[in-house]
Design a protein around this nucleic acid. Sequence first.
DNA 1: TATGAATGAGTTTTCATTCAT
DNA 2: GATGAATGAAAACTCATTCAT
Lengths: 202, 202, 202, 202
Amino acid sequence: MREKTKSAQIFEAAAGVFAEKGFHAATVEEIASRAGIGKGTVYEYFPSKEALFRAMLKAGMQSYLAAVRERLKRPASARGALEQIALAHACFVREKGALARLIADEQGCLAPWAREWVFRMRERKLEAIAKLIARGAEQGEFRPVNPRLAAEVFLGVVGAICLPALFTRECASGRGSGSPAHAGLESRMLEGLKIFFHGLTK
Amino acid sequence: MREKTKSAQIFEAAAGVFAEKGFHAATVEEIASRAGIGKGTVYEYFPSKEALFRAMLKAGMQSYLAAVRERLKRPASARGALEQIALAHACFVREKGALARLIADEQGCLAPWAREWVFRMRERKLEAIAKLIARGAEQGEFRPVNPRLAAEVFLGVVGAICLPALFTRECASGRGSGSPAHAGLESRMLEGLKIFFHGLTK
Amino acid sequence: MREKTKSAQIFEAAAGVFAEKGFHAATVEEIASRAGIGKGTVYEYFPSKEALFRAMLKAGMQSYLAAVRERLKRPASARGALEQIALAHACFVREKGALARLIADEQGCLAPWAREWVFRMRERKLEAIAKLIARGAEQGEFRPVNPRLAAEVFLGVVGAICLPALFTRECASGRGSGSPAHAGLESRMLEGLKIFFHGLTK
Amino acid sequence: MREKTKSAQIFEAAAGVFAEKGFHAATVEEIASRAGIGKGTVYEYFPSKEALFRAMLKAGMQSYLAAVRERLKRPASARGALEQIALAHACFVREKGALARLIADEQGCLAPWAREWVFRMRERKLEAIAKLIARGAEQGEFRPVNPRLAAEVFLGVVGAICLPALFTRECASGRGSGSPAHAGLESRMLEGLKIFFHGLTK
DNA sequence: TATGAATGAGTTTTCATTCAT
DNA sequence: GATGAATGAAAACTCATTCAT
């Protein structure tokens, strides 16, 4: 009766190592040893280092999206919805720092194919957020702005607020809640967003 | 009478290759061949691949800072100063795409030491910007806000606006001015900043 | 009531895989799966891959020798005896193509120890055949020749006639009788031997 | 002023190791060390172990064919031509034992692609020899026989005569002339062929 | 000074073998 | 007995670095 599947164990170790070292500098050996298994065992679950990386990114992105969707279930104003997205982002960063550095981090220095994949993900997020902002503008909640541009600004703000938390070493240990960089991440997020929303108001 | 010193030639080639492939996937051989010199020659100028990387980052950062300082020479309002910083950033991205992806890009997945170095650079920038914002608030130009937080938001906005330009392939070729992603980078920057400044006003 | 013992099952699968891939490229996993058993089970019957290979060669050689002896039971002229040997060889190739490629094939590129073993087997065959030829010469059936040399020539002829059948893919499937390369193997053998016997006559 | 090119050095070492161990069991490290160079150097000349193997086979086959053609320059009777072919074969075996085991040896246990390549080479040889035999029959030199079958028999005889020389360890050392297995290889070849030619006569 | 051929440490990947179930 | 998940030794291959020219 193990709590985690072997795949999940490997994912977690891989996220940590890949985030710390980057794809090329990470070694399968270190991933395996951090997962507490033998090197060969990794290859029982993933056909190659790259496949492991892709699978981990994909799973991570799905869990990220699931967290966002969960928070958007209840209807809310445009501002409320955007705040929920931002808080989901902060929460993801706080709880899965290592993964977040690879996924939520929009600008990772990855292999070209990974960069493109991450970029496409970002485009999808931008579209959804731009739609929210456009709706907010139509309904008089925001002043009229270029929704696409405002969406980019929004993601920039959210990312910037989380950045310090991504640089701390403790991220990797999973439960970074005690780290000073994480302290009040959500409240700093809300306060930072106030500037953004103030910029969209009236 | 060469236009560029050998070091500068190597820096330029290195920036391109490092930005495209990342530190580990980049090979000294490709850097040398792109610089039009022999592999061994690189080692006449830099003792190791890592030393070349550090030196290139440092030189790049210095040219970045010089560009910013140049734009801040003439006295200006706080908003004017921040706009100049943002435009310098955009200009740097447009002209040295590859380098920018490594330097201006705050979140690169680099080796730990490089990440820390980049992080410290960011801290210095944040301090300077926070000071500008605090001054603007004191002088009634902005409403009172947490200057440090606002500075983070500012960098987030500036970075987000430049991001699409950093993803385009043409960056590497040095003169990316024709690329659609670069078109109107400065005007998009100013428009994006309007939201930010609106958020700081009244 | 299984028709075949587990060992025989494994032998058959092993012969196929070893013949197709060679000793080193063959994997225990594929042998097991082709035998329809689990990988670990192979090790219940053979202590190692190499032991399995040796045992399979040995068993194969025994069945080859048994087939030859069976055909030599009834007294015959020297020519008749040699023809029976050749036909036994052809028959073995036709029915156990994969094994034949490993055993009857005198020149396999095997591990050194296997090569020596195969070579010793060949020496024994040569001795027996040389004796037959010498007897034939004594009794006036053949003209006087160097019996050892003639025996080598005999084996060369027999092997050459069978060669095309050893290269066909269908060998592995066990019952290759339908293959064009096998069609008339025995009659081609007898016709080829006519040249040989003509060379020994008068 | 080296006597041999680096490629030739590697070819020679590779032929020895591949012949002794087979393709899969041979290691690049051993080939390199036998060639007296570093492991990495092999990869400066050949992109992969397999490429080295193919190149070595091809070069070896060309030198084999060149040796045969050289001996067929002067016009000769069909028998004379066949004898020259056989002697070229014997000579090749004596001088390049290791390579011969891979090339002249018709039945090597190689990777499938290599097996097919060797088989096609054999087919070409068979055609040429069959033509010689057919011509000899037309001109009354030989009695009428199936030329294709007779060619197969011829190759079988030639191969069988050389076989003992291929099994000796000294082959690899290049100049195996002192080995007992090589002693009188040519004279044994001619004597063995007498049986064959006697079989074709009258 | 500039070069690139040579090198071997380090990485990914495979697979024979073990052993708990 | 039978199994297959787990393992790590071993092998192909890459590339930073050296050094003779």
